[in-house]
């Protein structure tokens, strides 16, 4: 187990709703911690009473267990006027946190796993798109993605081609930008903040920043939860449980450019928590 890289990243460990219910005892990177306080003054401590840095951003309490925290990535859209910020609760998944992120970056599974919502046969083709590691920001980006979706969002009235962009801002945090059905000139933002409980179990906190004034809050959350529960049935049945970084272990195709870039990026950084490396 290599926690070295992971220790200095920030992780979502609670949302405001959780905090309002009282202290949340949870696990992060194989360590027990307790999250308490309020959004204005969140607090994270371990069983020995040691306090860790905590901040409230994007609807969640973030913490870092390491001695040299990197800065928490920025999601500029969170500050844009008119967006509804929607924390979607938490989904526990028995899988590697990295597999959860990789699945989030994948569109080719939509027709089979999210049938009738995010995809449907015979619209299975993944057109060429661009995936790259952006060294200047140390992120993975996938752009120029377009895919036919029967119901791209809660607010979608009919099927249509949806444009996507993906941004991997940290090994366990990813943001997607997709066509906003009621506001075609803008893009909806959906993120997943993955809390690695261990290398083989995670809590996934989806979060959205949408232009949708009509859907009720519960409906938006329910739509997203349904999607993630469908993903869970895949994520808990992948073997090996950890994400293999050796390209020989799992055979990709052109549609997997984002996944290939993500795995390569993790490997180059030494972000091995939840990964299966060649010498493992």
């Amino acid at each position: 187990m290599s926690r070295a890289y992971a220790m200095n990243d920030w992780y979502a460990v609670a949302d405001a709703q959780t905090l309002a219910r009282g202290a949340r005892r949870t696990m992060l990177l194989d360590q027990d911690v307790t999250v308490s306080g309020t959004p204005d003054a969140p607090k994270v401590i371990d069983d020995a009473g040691r306090t860790y840095p905590a901040q409230f951003k994007y609807g969640h309490v973030w913490t870092c267990l390491g001695d040299a925290p990197r800065s928490l990535f920025d999601i500029p859209e969170a500050a844009e006027q008119g967006r509804r910020l929607v924390p979607c609760g938490v989904v526990r998944v028995k899988c590697s946190p990295l597999r959860a992120v990789e699945n989030f970056l994948d569109i080719a599974h939509f027709p089979f796993v999210h049938t009738g919502i995010l995809g449907s046969e015979p619209h299975t083709e993944v057109a060429p798109y661009k995936a790259e590691i952006r060294d200047e920001v140390d992120e993975v980006w996938a752009t120029k993605i377009s895919f036919y979706q029967p119901q791209a969002a809660k607010s979608a009235q009919a099927g249509g081609d949806t444009d996507y962009q993906y941004r991997v801002a940290a090994p366990t945090s990813a943001v997607l930008y997709k066509t906003c059905p009621p506001k075609p000139e803008a893009m909806d933002v959906i993120a997943i903040f993955v809390q690695p409980r261990s290398e083989t179990e995670c809590d996934v906190w989806p979060w959205m920043a949408l232009y949708d004034d009509t859907s009720d809050f519960a409906g938006l959350v329910q739509f997203q939860q349904e999607i993630f529960l469908q993903d869970r049935s895949i994520l808990e049945n992948q073997r090996p449980v950890k994400l293999p970084l050796d390209p020989k272990m799992e055979i990709p195709t052109r549609a997997d450019l984002t996944s290939i870039a993500y795995r390569r990026w993790l490997k180059s950084k030494g972000a091995f928590y939840g990964a299966l490396t060649e010498d493992a």
Binding site: A108, P111, E121, T124, I234, A255
Partner: peptide, 18 residues
């Protein structure tokens, strides 16, 4: 997961994404 098809010999016959 992605609908890849395999024939009785185990060989992949079809990748729906392409």
């Amino acid at each position: 997961y992605h609908g890849w098809h395999y024939g009785s010999s185990g060989v992949c016959r079809y990748i729906p994404a392409h």
